[in-house]
Amino acid sequence: MAINVKVVERPIEETSYVRATLKGMANTLKHLVGGHRVTTQYPEQRESISRRWRGTHRMLTTEDGKAKCVACGLCPTVCPANCIKLVPGEDEQGNRYPLVFDIDEFRCIFCGYCQEVCPEEAIHLGRHYENAEFNREGFIYDLERLMAQTHPVTEMWDPADPKGE
């Protein structure tokens, strides 16, 4: 019922409109002349990101320039977003390697499980966020592209250093 309104008898200072207005105007003017700007001017200035920032992926390579990945299939298994497409291959010596390793960055939720589960420390998330593309196909990173990325990789959570300092 509309009538069941709680009536609060407020003091004059609180019900006054003129005084509140003047006070408010003084406040806004104070902020106007206060100077102090908090905006980060993005392309020129950048906020520093955490060492545990989880951004677009990187595939690490061995000294001879091959992907560290052994196509064990753990990362597509653990991936909750089902964004990793892996087709394993095997060479003459019996070494496994990925024939296809595609990550759909649109599907990826950047949970970092792939990095955590990887026995070879091959696939990593990266400390990187400027990943705009002109078309949707650009967001499916193939093995070549994952290997070509150079940004720093994400650090794993360390129980000894829970805040990442």
Partner: peptide, 16 residues
């Protein structure tokens, strides 16, 4: 006028 008369707050027009 500046006793809650300019802009009726939640309590103004309804007396106890």
């Amino acid at each position: 006028l500046d006793r809650g008369k300019i802009v009726s707050p939640a309590n103004a027009p309804l007396h106890a």
